[in-house]
């Protein structure tokens, strides 16, 4: 028997994004990349490495240093029928472009009665854990998930990075694409000839389990898997769900899991109040209240600005904090046993 499917190659997440971008630019001449230092330098994380050489400065555009400028001109290009892919150099630098994203990109399709589409992809390296200086470790996804008109996704592994970036670019809706920067160097198999990649909107059960549903996305998927392995040594079976899509959230997949396990833990790096964990736990409570054996738990960054690097280990959810929450939903002894708000 002969097979035409390419054998998967081992790539880092960053290189998988590079391959996905390369293919998108090669396949559609309306795709243009815009960003700071994405040309000769190949981006500060080298995600666009080599693209300028192969596709030239009209497709791979080093822009002036202005995020509002990048997003605003992408809107004009989209009006003209292009599919811009914007790179925001770091999470904390998206705010000068925030107005153009939430007030313009998100609303143009709606307010033109569907006449105008904004097939813009906005790539954002996000999250902490790299010991960076301020504004380089943030998780601003909730602002965008809260904004109607935007799709929001995040990848956690090389295969999804490759698939999701192509699906995002192919989407006629604007997509905020959050890349887990501390996982850029994580390796995994990538099949570049996958016929039917999981759709943009779908979550993925990355590890099956029966006792607790653990929902996360982006950089913490790896941490969650480590926690699940540790828990299994302890006889606890954790089902790990990688959301992939943060807007819309694939509630059906979460719901199915919680109906099975009866217990939910959500973890993300972003601050707790008004975060995605709040949305997920509220939805689960609404949708499968009768199946819940315990109150859902959230393990998140605190409601503080991202701290100095030497404190980030206290801010970031890690394996121990996740397992502590798992103990809580299982009714085992945990850090809040005996804790009361009055103390």
């Amino acid at each position: 028997m002969t097979t035409t499917a390419a054998t998967p190659t081992e790539l880092t997440l960053g290189k998988a994004l590079n391959a996905g971008l390369r293919r998108a630019v090669a396949e559609d001449d309306r795709v243009v990349l815009l960003g700071e230092d994405i040309g000769k330098l190949g981006g500060v994380f080298r995600v666009t490495d080599g693209l300028l050489d192969d596709f030239g400065p009209r497709r791979i555009v080093d822009t002036p240093l202005a995020e509002s400028g990048i997003i605003g001109t992408a809107i004009g290009l989209a009006f003209r029928g292009f599919r811009p892919v914007c790179e925001i150099q770091f999470d904390g630098f998206i705010y000068p472009g925030f107005d153009q994203i939430v007030a313009q990109v998100a609303k143009l399709h709606y307010r033109t009665g569907g006449a105008v589409t904004m097939p813009i992809t906005i790539r954002v390296p996000f999250g902490g854990g790299i010991g960076a200086v301020e504004h380089h470790s943030e998780s601003p996804e909730a602002y965008f998930a809260h904004t109607a008109g935007l799709r929001v996704v995040s990848c956690s592994n090389p295969q999804d990075a490759y698939d999701l970036i192509r699906l995002a670019i192919a989407s006629d809706d604007p997509v905020l694409f959050f890349e887990p920067k501390r996982r850029y160097w994580a390796k995994g198999p990538v099949d570049q000839a996958l016929a039917n990649p999981l759709p943009l909107e779908s979550a993925r059960v990355v590890r099956e389990g029966t006792d607790v549903t653990l929902v996360t996305y982006g950089p913490l998927v790896m941490t969650a898997l480590d926690a699940a392995i540790a828990a299994s040594d302890d006889g606890v079976s954790i089902e790990v769900i990688d959301l992939r899509s943060l807007s819309p959230i694939d509630h059906a997949t979460i719901e199915e899991s919680v109906r099975k396990t009866g217990r939910l833990v959500v973890t993300h790096e972003a601050a707790q109040s008004g975060g995605l964990g709040a949305e997920i736990t509220a939805s689960v409570t609404e949708r499968c209240f009768d199946f819940l054996e315990a109150a859902p738990a959230r393990v998140t960054g605190f409601d503080v600005p991202y701290p100095a690097a030497s404190l980030e280990d206290h801010f970031l959810p890690d394996l121990d904090r996740i397992l502590d929450a798992v103990d809580r939903v299982l009714g085992r002894r945990n850090s809040l046993t005996g804790w009361s708000a009055a103390k």
Binding site: E36, D37, G39, K40, L41, V44, D62, P64, L65
Partner: peptide, 9 residues
């Protein structure tokens, strides 16, 4: 500005 020459700005 990192890798961008002033002529771009």
């Amino acid at each position: 500005a990192i890798s961008e020459p002033v002529a771009l700005q």
